[in-house]
Design a protein around this nucleic acid. Sequence first.
DNA 1: ATGTAAATAT
DNA 2: TATATTTACA
Length: 343
Amino acid sequence: MGSLIAQGLTLDCSPPSKAWTPKSTTEFLAEVSRLDNVSEKISKLDDYVNRLQDEMKKIDAFKRELPLCMFLLNDAIARMKEEIMRCQSSNCEPILEEFIPLKKSSSDDEKAGEEVKETDIVDRREKMNWMSSVQLWNADSNKKRKEESVDRAAMEELFRGGKSSRTAGKAFSPFKGCSNFLAMAVGKEGRDEFPAAPSLSLRTLRLRLNGRKQRRCWSPELHRRFVSALQQLGGAQAATPKQIRELMQVDGLTNDEVKSHLQKYRLHTRRVPPATNASAAVLWASQEQCGESSKPSNSQSSSPQGPLHLSSRATSVTGGDSVEEEDDDNKSESRSWKRESHV
DNA sequence: ATGTAAATAT
DNA sequence: TATATTTACA
């Protein structure tokens, strides 16, 4: 509970242009306290504050997604400033090595907690606990590697709802703890398939951290929506990714994801693979590869189990091609795309 | 923004 | 190996 304020603070992948080794606030303060020269102290502190503020700007775009980050940053900054004041005013007394964990850094704090509810803060408090034990960014002063990996795995599991194999064991993992932090920052909002709101920024951030986007799992429910939207838009050929996405109303679903799915859909639904038993009319919606542990915990306005009623003209499929659009989507759509015949 | 192909991950 | 999904490109 003690030293949990802000350790690395380098959430961003791109390291500070200069070769500056991030120190924990504790470490840094201790270091400063060893200096004799007051002006030097202030200088150092000021420099640190600048770096913190710089960092702040970087993550500013993500403040929604990384409220804790902002909070820690602000807190650290406040502390440093306070220390500076202390030096300036009083004869630069001592610099408490053991700083106060959660000082109510009023002004700065408010900024960070803009849209943060108090209840959430309490919540984060707890998380901060394990976070501190995890030592996300700080290299040294941490001997709990074991615990870390455990926690991280757990969190990752929780975060991505299953498969935690991406960058987990890979050699490329710039910030092992970041996924942790992300998961935490996202918290209850972006857990399953339908993140509440962090559509772009979060992804962008994770992209920068992980290097690759998390695979979008097209659960049957998602697909249903997809198809539904498709129908509303007059078929796969007429529908455009953006429109589809908007009709689907699935938070966190990106344009590209829809586009990709559409591409596949079109691919597999072109020219009716007729022979396939009509019983296979569930194929497209039955891609349950992601069913690992992520189930459509649909927090959207529609029920997960698929009411999705689109009674456009499903049965009015005139023999062949009536309208220029919907000719192959309504019926052939659900047919086969899983045929085993190739070459 | 969209369609498509190439690259990757599973 | 086959597919699903992501990225790169036009």
